[in-house]
């Protein structure tokens, strides 16, 4: 028999390279030596049962885990060959390059306009034209412009959940990130809002590298190009989504995605 796929696929055009990444919360080892590449300008879905380390893993990419004192990390993560844990790295700049969208939308209690340009304001941008352009471009990209163009100066808190989540995506896009991390971005949304976010993810693919954590198998199958299956801090399988969901190599993956386990 030929053409048997390997459990961990090699990626030719990777933006992120992870080598032997270990992460400990105190004495507990949450990531147990992860080595994988994240394909550039593609959507990579991370799946696995709760507590398998997938959220912890993506939080390493923008050093969100730095905020937790008991954490120790070893191994290496490079973004375009730059070691992001090197002392010389500006974490603020890293977080501009690697944006994040959370499970529960978190707009600021400000206007829609101010939410979108928040990152630029922090960076000291004052050019009104540039700010206006950024708002329009980002809202269009997030499929919100038509709905919101006449309400830009109203509070973001009056939007629906799905709209707020798209606003958070617009806010992430506004600072021109290379990578967007999404941690269960649809788990609190109804099916219609979910499908709008999913469409948006498909549209952003090609311009941004997107890494999405999801508990919804069908969502991973629908939106991603690549799928990684994590289990108890280990990467079990990583490959093309269309293959993983039709012919997974590892039995553990099969059992998880078919709902026999986890």
């Amino acid at each position: 028999m030929t053409a048997q796929a390997t459990p961990i696929m090699q990626i030719t055009d990777a933006i992120v390279e992870v080598k032997d990444l270990h992460l400990y919360y105190g004495d507990s080892e949450a990531l147990r030596g992860i080595t994988m590449s994240i394909p550039r300008k593609k959507v990579t879905a991370l799946i696995g049962p709760s507590g398998c380390g997938k959220s912890t893993f993506i939080r390493c990419f923008n050093r969100m885990n730095d905020l937790i004192e008991s954490i120790r990390i070893s191994g290496e993560i490079t973004i375009d060959d730059q070691d992001i844990y090197d002392n010389s790295v500006d974490v603020i700049e890293l977080r501009r390059r690697v944006g994040m969208v959370f499970q529960k939308w978190n707009p600021f209690p400000k206007s829609i306009y101010e939410n979108v340009i928040y990152g630029l304001r922090i960076a000291g941008v004052r050019d009104k034209n540039l700010l206006d352009e950024t708002v329009e471009k980002s809202l269009k990209r997030a499929a919100l412009w038509d709905e919101m163009k006449d309400r830009l100066h109203e509070s973001a808190m009056g939007m629906s959940g799905g709209q707020m989540q798209r606003l958070c995506i617009a806010r992430a896009i506004a600072v021109s990130p290379e990578i967007i991390l999404m941690d269960e971005p649809c788990s609190a949304l109804d099916p219609r809002s979910t499908s709008r976010i999913e469409e948006l993810i498909r549209e952003l693919q090609g311009d941004y590298t997107i890494i999405i954590v999801t508990h919804n198998m069908q969502q991973a199958a629908r939106v991603s190009d690549f799928t990684a299956y994590f289990y108890i801090g280990e990467l079990v399988e990583f490959g093309l989504t269309k293959r993983v969901f039709t012919s997974p190599v590892r039995k553990e993956t099969e059992d998880y995605i078919t709902g026999r386990f986890g």
Binding site: Q218, A221, T246, P248, T258
Partner: peptide, 9 residues
């Protein structure tokens, strides 16, 4: 059921 993997095949 939206079967996947072995169930889908």
């Amino acid at each position: 059921h939206q079967p996947v993997a072995g169930d889908l095949r």
